[in-house]
Design a protein around this nucleic acid. Structure first.
Lengths: 144, 144
DNA sequence: ATAGTTTTGAAACTCAATTTCAGGCTGTGG
DNA sequence: CCACAGCCTGAAATTGAGTTTCAAAACTAT
């Protein structure tokens, strides 16, 4: 289990960036939740307890998280970027319900293996990937 | 081999939309290329031969293509939507070179099968998916 | 050809993301 | 412990892709 707070603080130090109250509050709130927050959503959550923190700061801090590797920036095609804490333990991909917005994480090592095969087939060096299945979650496929 | 021009014309008729000169020119130019055009890029190509066609028209027409199923809207995370002619013959996904922007299409039925397994595991009904591998194409991994 | 719609294209608008900048904070050196 | 140089903050302005507006033009059916 890596300590994401330490990783972030070390990143700040090596980049000669400053450890500020805002950055620490944002990090704490971000890590406290397993949600896939958009900047706007995290901003709204923070506002309740910390109305003084601005949207731009939340946005810049999320970008920092992504830079230092403690968060992953995701995009599910709803026009907003979302961020999730990065778990080095295991990579996962997503099922996205297009009706209620629910996001389910899944792991399938056999798909990962096939990705490596495909890349090799084209002499392609993969840095990252994105794999999302869109549709209806069980609840939403029962309704309507 | 489906005739995408006919599909589009039929769609226009059933939706009581009009067959206009602009729509035909845009369709022709779009199908002539296997590129993964963004609205802006297609607009620039069209401008050379047809300077009178406006950006909004190109955009609206690409949306129509997607609606009637002759095009697929893609998003590779560069902040622009891209469109490609839809080949019902076979589904494919993409390798995206993050250096030169090259896009390689790939087919891997075993991945598709595993996706179905994953969806079933979560009682999820899949409508569509998106699967992209990002990295360096062979040329770009040799340079630099 | 005419009437009744739809379409076009330039411009305005929207919305998330990003940048600006004056004032506030941090951490380092003294 | 203090001061200062430079980074940070947050409100506001800007950007850029996408979308909408609206009057004039084009299309289809009559």
């Amino acid at each position: 289990m890596i300590d994401r707070v330490s990783v972030f603080n070390q990143y700040l130090r090596t980049q000669k960036l400053k450890s500020t109250r805002q950055r620490m509050i944002i990090l704490e709130t971000f890590l406290d939740s397993k949600s896939h927050y958009s900047t706007e959503e995290l901003y709204q959550v923070l506002r309740k307890e910390h109305p003084h923190i601005g949207y731009a700061t939340v946005h810049r801090t999320l970008k920092l998280f992504a830079e230092c590797g403690i968060a992953i920036e995701l995009n599910f095609g709803d026009g907003q970027s979302r961020f999730e804490p990065h778990y080095t333990e295991h990579h996962h991909d997503h099922l996205v319900c297009t009706r209620c917005g629910k996001i389910i994480e899944f792991v399938e090592p056999r798909i990962e293996q096939l990705q490596r095969e495909v890349a090799e087939r084209y002499d392609f060096t993969v840095d990252s990937h994105r794999h999302e299945l869109y549709g209806r979650c069980i609840r939403c496929s029962q309704d309507s």
